[in-house]
Amino acid sequence: MLPVIWQGIVTGCLYSLGALGLVMIFKSSKMVNFAHGALAGYGAFSVHALTAGGAGWPWLAAVAAALLGAIAISVLVYGLIAELLQRAATTATIATLGIGLIAQGMILWQYGSNIFRLDLPLPHLSFSILGMALTAYDVAVLSATFLVVVALFLVIERTRLGVAFRAVSTDPFAARVCGLSISRVHLFSWVTSSMLGVIAALLIVPTTFLSSTTVTTFMLQAFAAAVIGGFDSLPGSAIGGILVGVSCNLFSFYVAPELLNTFLLTFMLASLSFFPGGILSQRLGSRV
């Protein structure tokens, strides 16, 4: 049982990374980005195309290029959506679904429905602690998650942009009255979110393979993590990711792996019934 939980924690970290991106966008612009998975998948595919898939770049350069590309795309996406956001979050949400479809279609068009392998450039190490095999991959995932979360925390807590982000997410109107540029904060959250998405995608792909749907299906767990942790809480979604990772692993190991989506659905509905607004939310007044 212990190895199953441990593997759950490792993949849960990646769900947290995905969920953090979704929550960043939700906190600033009050909308859900359904294109998150498809765009992150596009990033993973471009890393593959730049390294093993032909161009033969060094891995780090390819990742840097993919991150830059993700930033450019997220700026473009935000530019398309910005005006919709001022009217209704619903229409902006539907627009992100459209963008997700386009990204998915572009992946299919450029790379077909083939399956690729995309490994991290890691040495084949594995040590054994308490009867559990600890591989270099696990260490890489844990340390990458740790670094990203710490960096995100520092940016949000210590920089002027982070203060502005918190102000906008608490009260957009008051923030605008104080002279903060809303669209700059939105851009910050969209850019950060897209980078988090690409990092999560690159880390999740080695566990399975890279196909046009891998990353999008992976993002369902990220959505579940965000729902369980609360869409307006960054630490909540980080914990939610690990909870989802562990419980999914336990469920598919002991009960039925073919019912995983159904399990996630019931898990989300149960969590909404017992912890409306997320596991970390204090129940302060109404949230209508």
Binding site: F26, K30, M31, V32, F34, A89, T90, T93, L220, F223, A224, A226, V227, F231, N261, L264, L265, M268, L269, A270, L272, S273, P276, G277, S286, R287, V288
Partner: peptide, 18 residues
């Protein structure tokens, strides 16, 4: 039913799993 007191975002996201 579970999302009756929450913002509609939760409902939309859960429909994805549904």
């Amino acid at each position: 039913w579970p999302s009756r007191t929450l913002s509609g975002v939760y409902l939309s996201v859960v429909t994805l799993a549904l």
